[in-house]
Design a protein around this nucleic acid. Structure first.
Lengths: 209, 209
DNA sequence: TATAGGCTGTGACATATGTCACCAATTGTT
DNA sequence: AACAATTGGTGACATATGTCACAGCCTATA
Protein backbone atom coordinates (compact mmCIF):
# COMPACT_ATOMS: atom_id res chain seq x y z
CA UNK A 1 0.00 0.00 0.00
CA UNK A 2 1.72 3.15 -1.21
CA UNK A 3 0.67 6.72 -0.82
CA UNK A 4 1.90 9.78 -2.62
CA UNK A 5 2.90 13.05 -1.07
CA UNK A 6 -0.11 14.49 -2.82
CA UNK A 7 -2.53 12.37 -0.85
CA UNK A 8 -0.82 13.33 2.37
CA UNK A 9 -0.97 17.01 1.49
CA UNK A 10 -4.60 16.62 0.57
CA UNK A 11 -5.50 15.18 3.94
CA UNK A 12 -3.69 18.03 5.67
CA UNK A 13 -4.97 20.75 3.34
CA UNK A 14 -7.20 22.29 6.03
CA UNK A 15 -4.06 23.23 7.91
CA UNK A 16 -2.67 25.53 5.26
CA UNK A 17 0.32 25.20 2.96
CA UNK A 18 3.04 26.56 5.18
CA UNK A 19 2.07 24.51 8.22
CA UNK A 20 1.57 21.41 6.11
CA UNK A 21 5.10 21.80 4.74
CA UNK A 22 6.51 22.24 8.21
CA UNK A 23 4.67 19.20 9.53
CA UNK A 24 5.87 17.08 6.62
CA UNK A 25 9.38 18.32 7.30
CA UNK A 26 9.46 17.10 10.90
CA UNK A 27 7.38 13.97 10.59
CA UNK A 28 7.27 10.72 8.70
CA UNK A 29 4.66 8.77 6.84
CA UNK A 30 4.50 5.20 8.06
CA UNK A 31 2.52 2.19 7.00
CA UNK A 32 1.05 -0.11 9.63
CA UNK A 33 -0.66 -3.47 9.36
CA UNK A 34 -3.95 -4.13 11.10
CA UNK A 35 -3.90 -4.54 14.90
CA UNK A 36 -0.68 -2.64 15.55
CA UNK A 37 -0.68 -0.80 18.86
CA UNK A 38 0.16 2.86 18.47
CA UNK A 39 -0.68 4.05 21.95
CA UNK A 40 -0.64 2.22 25.25
CA UNK A 41 -2.26 3.26 28.50
CA UNK A 42 0.31 4.14 31.13
CA UNK A 43 3.08 4.80 28.64
CA UNK A 44 4.55 8.16 27.71
CA UNK A 45 3.46 9.47 24.38
CA UNK A 46 6.31 9.60 21.88
CA UNK A 47 4.36 10.24 18.70
CA UNK A 48 1.20 11.95 17.57
CA UNK A 49 -0.47 10.10 14.70
CA UNK A 50 -2.56 11.76 12.02
CA UNK A 51 -4.47 9.26 9.90
CA UNK A 52 -3.79 9.59 6.19
CA UNK A 53 -5.45 6.34 5.15
CA UNK A 54 -7.08 3.61 7.18
CA UNK A 55 -8.52 3.69 10.67
CA UNK A 56 -7.31 3.88 14.25
CA UNK A 57 -9.37 2.43 17.06
CA UNK A 58 -9.14 4.08 20.46
CA UNK A 59 -10.27 1.94 23.36
CA UNK A 60 -10.00 1.43 27.06
CA UNK A 61 -9.34 -1.86 28.79
CA UNK A 62 -9.83 -3.28 32.26
CA UNK A 63 -8.84 -6.80 33.16
CA UNK A 64 -9.97 -8.83 30.18
CA UNK A 65 -12.71 -6.49 29.06
CA UNK A 66 -12.36 -3.79 26.44
CA UNK A 67 -14.50 -0.87 25.45
CA UNK A 68 -14.34 1.00 22.17
CA UNK A 69 -14.20 4.75 22.71
CA UNK A 70 -14.08 6.02 19.14
CA UNK A 71 -12.43 5.59 15.76
CA UNK A 72 -9.94 8.04 14.25
CA UNK A 73 -10.54 8.45 10.53
CA UNK A 74 -8.43 10.03 7.76
CA UNK A 75 -7.56 13.69 8.34
CA UNK A 76 -8.13 13.13 12.04
CA UNK A 77 -5.69 12.84 14.85
CA UNK A 78 -5.48 11.53 18.38
CA UNK A 79 -6.41 14.26 20.79
CA UNK A 80 -5.19 12.24 23.74
CA UNK A 81 -1.68 12.00 22.36
CA UNK A 82 -1.69 15.74 21.61
CA UNK A 83 -2.59 16.54 25.17
CA UNK A 84 -0.30 13.98 26.73
CA UNK A 85 2.69 15.15 24.74
CA UNK A 86 2.12 18.81 25.60
CA UNK A 87 2.20 18.11 29.31
CA UNK A 88 4.52 15.13 29.08
CA UNK A 89 1.91 12.80 30.55
CA UNK A 90 1.17 9.17 30.07
CA UNK A 91 -1.62 8.02 27.81
CA UNK A 92 -4.89 7.05 29.43
CA UNK A 93 -6.15 5.06 26.47
CA UNK A 94 -5.04 2.45 23.96
CA UNK A 95 -4.99 3.02 20.22
CA UNK A 96 -4.41 0.48 17.51
CA UNK A 97 -4.91 0.21 13.79
CA UNK A 98 -8.36 -1.18 12.99
CA UNK A 99 -7.29 -1.94 9.47
CA UNK A 100 -4.02 -1.55 7.60
CA UNK A 101 -3.30 2.15 7.71
CA UNK A 102 -1.01 4.93 6.74
CA UNK A 103 -0.22 7.38 9.48
CA UNK A 104 1.66 10.62 9.56
CA UNK A 105 3.80 10.30 12.67
CA UNK A 106 4.72 13.57 14.36
CA UNK A 107 7.41 13.24 17.05
CA UNK A 108 5.97 14.39 20.37
CA UNK A 109 8.87 16.76 20.99
CA UNK A 110 7.91 18.80 17.94
CA UNK A 111 4.43 19.64 19.16
CA UNK A 112 5.40 22.54 21.35
CA UNK A 113 7.27 24.22 18.50
CA UNK A 114 4.36 23.69 16.13
CA UNK A 115 1.76 25.12 18.51
CA UNK A 116 4.00 28.14 19.22
CA UNK A 117 4.91 29.01 15.66
CA UNK A 118 1.66 28.05 14.02
CA UNK A 119 -1.46 29.12 15.87
CA UNK A 120 -3.50 27.45 13.16
CA UNK A 121 -2.08 24.15 14.31
CA UNK A 122 -4.43 24.60 17.20
CA UNK A 123 -7.28 24.36 14.74
CA UNK A 124 -6.68 20.65 14.45
CA UNK A 125 -6.53 20.40 18.19
CA UNK A 126 -9.77 22.31 18.75
CA UNK A 127 -11.55 20.38 16.04
CA UNK A 128 -10.46 17.07 17.43
CA UNK A 129 -11.33 18.11 20.94
CA UNK A 130 -14.89 18.99 20.06
CA UNK A 131 -15.47 15.71 18.27
CA UNK A 132 -13.94 13.55 20.96
CA UNK A 133 -15.59 15.34 23.85
CA UNK A 134 -18.92 14.74 22.20
CA UNK A 135 -18.05 11.12 21.41
CA UNK A 136 -17.30 10.48 25.07
CA UNK A 137 -20.36 12.42 26.15
CA UNK A 138 -22.62 10.41 23.85
CA UNK A 139 -21.23 7.19 25.23
CA UNK A 140 -21.93 8.32 28.78
CA UNK A 141 -25.45 9.37 27.91
CA UNK A 142 -26.13 6.04 26.27
CA UNK A 143 -24.74 4.10 29.19
CA UNK A 144 -26.77 6.00 31.76
CA UNK A 145 -30.00 6.79 29.99
CA UNK A 146 -30.60 3.92 27.59
CA UNK A 147 -30.48 0.16 27.54
CA UNK A 148 -28.08 -1.94 25.55
CA UNK A 149 -30.43 -2.43 22.61
CA UNK A 150 -30.26 1.24 21.72
CA UNK A 151 -26.54 1.35 22.24
CA UNK A 152 -26.13 -1.70 20.03
CA UNK A 153 -28.30 -0.24 17.27
CA UNK A 154 -26.35 3.00 17.38
CA UNK A 155 -23.07 1.09 17.28
CA UNK A 156 -24.17 -0.87 14.25
CA UNK A 157 -25.14 2.26 12.36
CA UNK A 158 -21.85 3.96 13.18
CA UNK A 159 -19.91 0.87 12.17
CA UNK A 160 -21.73 0.72 8.85
CA UNK A 161 -20.77 4.33 8.14
CA UNK A 162 -17.14 3.92 9.17
CA UNK A 163 -16.63 0.68 7.28
CA UNK A 164 -18.66 1.97 4.35
CA UNK A 165 -20.69 -1.22 4.13
CA UNK A 166 -24.19 -2.42 4.75
CA UNK A 167 -24.57 -5.31 5.57
CA UNK A 168 -21.86 -5.01 8.18
CA UNK A 169 -19.55 -7.98 8.55
CA UNK A 170 -19.05 -8.39 12.26
CA UNK A 171 -19.53 -11.20 14.79
CA UNK A 172 -21.55 -11.09 17.98
CA UNK A 173 -18.38 -11.77 19.92
CA UNK A 174 -16.64 -8.78 18.34
CA UNK A 175 -19.62 -6.54 19.04
CA UNK A 176 -19.65 -7.71 22.64
CA UNK A 177 -15.99 -6.90 22.90
CA UNK A 178 -16.40 -3.38 21.54
CA UNK A 179 -19.36 -2.62 23.78
CA UNK A 180 -17.83 -4.16 26.90
CA UNK A 181 -20.54 -6.77 27.36
CA UNK A 182 -21.19 -10.49 26.92
CA UNK A 183 -21.64 -12.30 23.61
CA UNK A 184 -24.80 -14.04 24.76
CA UNK A 185 -26.34 -10.70 25.65
CA UNK A 186 -25.53 -9.37 22.18
CA UNK A 187 -27.11 -12.47 20.61
CA UNK A 188 -30.22 -11.93 22.69
CA UNK A 189 -30.47 -8.21 21.97
CA UNK A 190 -29.78 -8.74 18.27
CA UNK A 191 -32.81 -11.03 18.23
CA UNK A 192 -34.81 -8.21 19.78
CA UNK A 193 -33.64 -5.73 17.16
CA UNK A 194 -34.62 -8.23 14.46
CA UNK A 195 -38.08 -8.58 15.92
CA UNK A 196 -38.38 -4.82 15.85
CA UNK A 197 -37.43 -4.81 12.15
CA UNK A 198 -34.37 -2.67 12.81
CA UNK A 199 -31.89 -5.21 11.42
CA UNK A 200 -31.77 -8.41 9.45
CA UNK A 201 -29.15 -10.98 10.35
CA UNK A 202 -27.43 -13.04 7.69
CA UNK A 203 -25.07 -15.90 8.38
CA UNK A 204 -22.04 -13.61 8.15
CA UNK A 205 -23.37 -10.08 8.35
CA UNK A 206 -25.97 -7.76 9.75
CA UNK A 207 -28.04 -5.50 7.56
CA UNK A 208 -29.27 -2.30 9.14
CA UNK A 209 -32.71 -1.37 7.89
CA UNK B 1 -19.53 38.37 48.64
CA UNK B 2 -16.86 40.71 47.28
CA UNK B 3 -13.64 39.89 45.59
CA UNK B 4 -10.67 42.10 44.91
CA UNK B 5 -8.78 42.41 41.66
CA UNK B 6 -5.91 40.83 43.50
CA UNK B 7 -7.78 37.60 44.06
CA UNK B 8 -8.78 37.52 40.41
CA UNK B 9 -5.23 38.10 39.29
CA UNK B 10 -4.05 35.42 41.65
CA UNK B 11 -6.38 32.83 40.17
CA UNK B 12 -5.18 33.73 36.68
CA UNK B 13 -1.50 34.00 37.61
CA UNK B 14 -0.55 30.88 35.66
CA UNK B 15 -1.50 32.68 32.49
CA UNK B 16 1.12 35.40 32.81
CA UNK B 17 0.82 39.10 33.53
CA UNK B 18 0.24 40.43 30.07
CA UNK B 19 -2.43 37.91 29.15
CA UNK B 20 -4.10 38.31 32.52
CA UNK B 21 -4.31 42.06 31.96
CA UNK B 22 -5.79 41.57 28.53
CA UNK B 23 -8.35 39.08 29.78
CA UNK B 24 -9.38 41.42 32.57
CA UNK B 25 -9.68 44.19 30.03
CA UNK B 26 -12.20 42.35 27.86
CA UNK B 27 -14.11 40.48 30.51
CA UNK B 28 -16.13 41.10 33.62
CA UNK B 29 -16.23 39.62 37.09
CA UNK B 30 -19.74 38.59 38.01
CA UNK B 31 -21.29 37.20 41.15
CA UNK B 32 -23.86 34.43 40.88
CA UNK B 33 -26.11 32.84 43.47
CA UNK B 34 -26.36 29.07 43.78
CA UNK B 35 -28.25 27.18 41.06
CA UNK B 36 -27.89 29.79 38.32
CA UNK B 37 -27.65 28.27 34.85
CA UNK B 38 -24.60 29.47 32.98
CA UNK B 39 -24.71 27.09 30.03
CA UNK B 40 -27.62 25.31 28.42
CA UNK B 41 -27.54 22.35 26.06
CA UNK B 42 -28.65 23.32 22.58
CA UNK B 43 -27.94 27.01 23.04
CA UNK B 44 -25.15 28.98 21.47
CA UNK B 45 -22.33 29.84 23.81
CA UNK B 46 -22.09 33.54 24.50
CA UNK B 47 -19.66 33.52 27.40
CA UNK B 48 -16.74 31.50 28.66
CA UNK B 49 -16.64 31.36 32.45
CA UNK B 50 -13.48 31.03 34.51
CA UNK B 51 -14.19 30.27 38.14
CA UNK B 52 -12.63 32.75 40.56
CA UNK B 53 -14.48 31.59 43.65
CA UNK B 54 -17.15 28.97 44.13
CA UNK B 55 -18.03 25.99 42.00
CA UNK B 56 -19.68 25.23 38.67
CA UNK B 57 -21.43 21.94 38.09
CA UNK B 58 -21.45 20.55 34.58
CA UNK B 59 -24.11 17.96 33.89
CA UNK B 60 -26.14 16.29 31.20
CA UNK B 61 -29.87 15.75 31.29
CA UNK B 62 -32.34 13.47 29.56
CA UNK B 63 -36.04 13.63 30.25
CA UNK B 64 -36.23 14.02 34.00
CA UNK B 65 -32.90 12.39 34.77
CA UNK B 66 -29.63 14.20 35.27
CA UNK B 67 -26.05 13.07 35.41
CA UNK B 68 -23.16 15.00 36.91
CA UNK B 69 -20.20 15.10 34.56
CA UNK B 70 -17.70 17.11 36.60
CA UNK B 71 -17.22 20.21 38.73
CA UNK B 72 -15.30 23.29 37.65
CA UNK B 73 -13.25 24.67 40.51
CA UNK B 74 -11.43 28.00 40.97
CA UNK B 75 -8.78 28.72 38.34
CA UNK B 76 -10.59 26.33 36.04
CA UNK B 77 -12.73 27.01 33.04
CA UNK B 78 -15.35 25.31 30.93
CA UNK B 79 -13.68 23.50 28.09
CA UNK B 80 -16.98 22.90 26.36
CA UNK B 81 -17.73 26.61 26.12
CA UNK B 82 -14.19 27.27 24.80
CA UNK B 83 -14.67 24.76 22.06
CA UNK B 84 -18.22 25.75 21.21
CA UNK B 85 -17.34 29.42 20.94
CA UNK B 86 -14.36 28.77 18.70
CA UNK B 87 -16.47 26.94 16.15
CA UNK B 88 -19.66 28.82 16.89
CA UNK B 89 -21.45 25.66 18.00
CA UNK B 90 -24.14 24.97 20.52
CA UNK B 91 -23.37 23.62 23.94
CA UNK B 92 -23.84 19.91 24.49
CA UNK B 93 -23.95 20.17 28.28
CA UNK B 94 -25.53 22.20 31.06
CA UNK B 95 -23.55 24.17 33.62
CA UNK B 96 -24.83 25.84 36.74
CA UNK B 97 -23.41 27.25 39.94
CA UNK B 98 -23.22 24.56 42.61
CA UNK B 99 -22.77 27.22 45.27
CA UNK B 100 -22.71 30.98 45.19
CA UNK B 101 -19.79 31.84 42.96
CA UNK B 102 -17.72 34.52 41.38
CA UNK B 103 -16.96 34.00 37.73
CA UNK B 104 -14.81 35.83 35.27
CA UNK B 105 -16.99 36.07 32.20
CA UNK B 106 -15.15 36.25 28.88
CA UNK B 107 -17.36 37.21 25.93
CA UNK B 108 -17.26 34.40 23.37
CA UNK B 109 -16.37 36.74 20.55
CA UNK B 110 -13.09 37.64 22.25
CA UNK B 111 -11.78 34.10 22.28
CA UNK B 112 -10.47 34.03 18.77
CA UNK B 113 -8.44 37.21 19.35
CA UNK B 114 -7.06 35.86 22.60
CA UNK B 115 -5.97 32.55 21.09
CA UNK B 116 -4.36 34.35 18.14
CA UNK B 117 -2.45 36.99 20.07
CA UNK B 118 -1.60 34.93 23.10
CA UNK B 119 -0.44 31.39 22.37
CA UNK B 120 -0.15 30.87 26.12
CA UNK B 121 -3.90 31.23 26.35
CA UNK B 122 -3.96 27.79 24.85
CA UNK B 123 -2.25 26.57 28.00
CA UNK B 124 -5.54 26.93 29.83
CA UNK B 125 -7.30 25.12 27.04
CA UNK B 126 -4.85 22.22 26.97
CA UNK B 127 -4.89 21.90 30.72
CA UNK B 128 -8.64 21.88 30.86
CA UNK B 129 -8.87 19.44 28.01
CA UNK B 130 -6.66 16.90 29.69
CA UNK B 131 -8.58 17.06 32.94
CA UNK B 132 -12.00 16.86 31.34
CA UNK B 133 -11.12 14.12 28.91
CA UNK B 134 -9.94 12.04 31.81
CA UNK B 135 -13.00 12.92 33.90
CA UNK B 136 -15.26 11.68 31.12
CA UNK B 137 -13.09 8.64 30.55
CA UNK B 138 -13.18 7.72 34.24
CA UNK B 139 -16.95 7.97 34.25
CA UNK B 140 -17.19 5.68 31.25
CA UNK B 141 -14.82 3.16 32.80
CA UNK B 142 -16.82 3.15 36.01
CA UNK B 143 -20.11 2.74 34.20
CA UNK B 144 -18.87 -0.16 32.10
CA UNK B 145 -16.48 -1.98 34.35
CA UNK B 146 -17.80 -1.50 37.87
CA UNK B 147 -21.05 -1.64 39.76
CA UNK B 148 -22.79 1.27 41.37
CA UNK B 149 -21.28 0.69 44.80
CA UNK B 150 -17.81 1.55 43.56
CA UNK B 151 -19.10 4.53 41.61
CA UNK B 152 -20.94 5.74 44.68
CA UNK B 153 -17.89 5.37 46.92
CA UNK B 154 -15.76 7.24 44.40
CA UNK B 155 -18.39 9.96 44.13
CA UNK B 156 -18.49 10.40 47.90
CA UNK B 157 -14.72 10.74 48.13
CA UNK B 158 -14.63 13.29 45.33
CA UNK B 159 -17.49 15.24 46.89
CA UNK B 160 -15.70 15.33 50.22
CA UNK B 161 -12.62 16.78 48.55
CA UNK B 162 -14.53 19.35 46.51
CA UNK B 163 -16.70 20.51 49.39
CA UNK B 164 -13.75 20.33 51.79
CA UNK B 165 -15.77 18.45 54.38
CA UNK B 166 -15.97 15.03 55.94
CA UNK B 167 -18.64 14.10 56.92
CA UNK B 168 -20.31 15.14 53.69
CA UNK B 169 -23.73 16.71 53.99
CA UNK B 170 -25.73 15.24 51.15
CA UNK B 171 -29.02 13.36 50.85
CA UNK B 172 -29.59 10.02 49.15
CA UNK B 173 -31.96 11.73 46.74
CA UNK B 174 -29.28 14.25 45.74
CA UNK B 175 -26.72 11.51 45.25
CA UNK B 176 -29.18 9.57 43.11
CA UNK B 177 -29.73 12.66 41.03
CA UNK B 178 -26.02 13.24 40.45
CA UNK B 179 -25.36 9.63 39.55
CA UNK B 180 -28.41 9.25 37.33
CA UNK B 181 -29.99 6.51 39.39
CA UNK B 182 -32.83 5.89 41.87
CA UNK B 183 -32.86 7.06 45.48
CA UNK B 184 -33.87 3.64 46.78
CA UNK B 185 -30.89 2.10 45.03
CA UNK B 186 -28.59 4.63 46.68
CA UNK B 187 -30.10 3.83 50.08
CA UNK B 188 -29.52 0.15 49.47
CA UNK B 189 -25.96 0.55 48.24
CA UNK B 190 -25.12 2.97 51.05
CA UNK B 191 -26.14 0.21 53.46
CA UNK B 192 -23.73 -2.08 51.64
CA UNK B 193 -20.88 0.43 51.93
CA UNK B 194 -21.63 0.76 55.65
CA UNK B 195 -21.45 -2.98 56.11
CA UNK B 196 -18.07 -2.91 54.37
CA UNK B 197 -16.86 -0.25 56.81
CA UNK B 198 -16.25 2.22 53.99
CA UNK B 199 -18.63 4.85 55.33
CA UNK B 200 -20.62 5.73 58.43
CA UNK B 201 -24.02 7.32 58.00
CA UNK B 202 -25.24 10.00 60.40
CA UNK B 203 -28.71 11.45 60.37
CA UNK B 204 -27.63 14.35 58.15
CA UNK B 205 -24.26 13.38 56.75
CA UNK B 206 -22.01 10.61 55.55
CA UNK B 207 -18.52 10.09 56.91
CA UNK B 208 -16.04 8.48 54.56
CA UNK B 209 -13.67 6.21 56.44
C1' DT C 1 -49.33 21.37 69.26
C1' DA C 2 -50.68 19.59 64.84
C1' DT C 3 -49.61 19.14 60.26
C1' DA C 4 -46.78 19.06 56.19
C1' DG C 5 -42.71 18.03 53.96
C1' DG C 6 -38.48 15.72 53.48
C1' DC C 7 -35.54 11.85 54.33
C1' DT C 8 -34.25 7.03 55.10
C1' DG C 9 -35.38 2.25 55.24
C1' DT C 10 -37.61 -1.82 53.50
C1' DG C 11 -40.23 -5.39 51.02
C1' DA C 12 -42.21 -7.02 46.84
C1' DC C 13 -41.86 -7.30 42.25
C1' DA C 14 -39.99 -6.36 37.51
C1' DT C 15 -36.45 -5.80 34.15
C1' DA C 16 -31.86 -5.79 32.24
C1' DT C 17 -27.67 -7.87 32.03
C1' DG C 18 -24.17 -11.47 33.15
C1' DT C 19 -22.62 -16.33 33.62
C1' DC C 20 -22.68 -21.12 32.78
C1' DA C 21 -23.67 -24.98 30.06
C1' DC C 22 -24.87 -27.04 26.11
C1' DC C 23 -26.16 -27.73 21.24
C1' DA C 24 -26.22 -27.13 16.25
C1' DA C 25 -24.34 -25.21 12.15
C1' DT C 26 -20.68 -23.36 9.58
C1' DT C 27 -15.98 -22.49 8.43
C1' DG C 28 -11.12 -23.48 8.52
C1' DT C 29 -7.24 -26.68 8.77
C1' DT C 30 -4.82 -30.92 8.21
C1' DA D 1 -12.92 -36.41 4.59
C1' DA D 2 -12.26 -35.83 9.47
C1' DC D 3 -11.47 -32.96 13.02
C1' DA D 4 -10.97 -28.48 15.23
C1' DA D 5 -12.35 -23.93 15.80
C1' DT D 6 -15.66 -20.46 15.52
C1' DT D 7 -20.18 -18.67 15.72
C1' DG D 8 -25.03 -18.15 16.89
C1' DG D 9 -28.90 -19.76 19.68
C1' DT D 10 -31.04 -21.04 23.95
C1' DG D 11 -32.33 -22.24 28.70
C1' DA D 12 -31.47 -21.92 33.54
C1' DC D 13 -29.98 -19.32 37.05
C1' DA D 14 -27.81 -15.26 39.42
C1' DT D 15 -27.05 -10.51 40.25
C1' DA D 16 -27.67 -5.57 39.81
C1' DT D 17 -30.68 -2.01 39.30
C1' DG D 18 -35.32 0.19 38.86
C1' DT D 19 -40.19 0.96 40.36
C1' DC D 20 -43.92 0.99 43.51
C1' DA D 21 -45.79 1.28 47.95
C1' DC D 22 -45.53 2.03 52.50
C1' DA D 23 -43.78 3.09 57.22
C1' DG D 24 -41.17 5.58 60.59
C1' DC D 25 -38.50 9.50 61.98
C1' DC D 26 -37.10 14.24 62.00
C1' DT D 27 -37.52 19.13 60.93
C1' DA D 28 -40.00 23.21 59.65
C1' DT D 29 -44.13 25.86 59.63
C1' DA D 30 -48.63 27.62 60.90
Amino acid sequence: MMVSNEIVKQQLAFLGKELTSKILEVSSVVEFEKDIEILKEGQYVKVIPIVIKGLLKVFTRQEDKELLLYYIKPSESCIMSFSASISNDKSTVYAKTAESSILLIIPADKIEMLTKLYPEFNTLFHQQFKVRYNDLLDTINQLVFTNLDQRLYHFLKETSIIRKENPVHISHREIANELGTAREVITRVMKKLEKEYKVVQNSDSIKIL
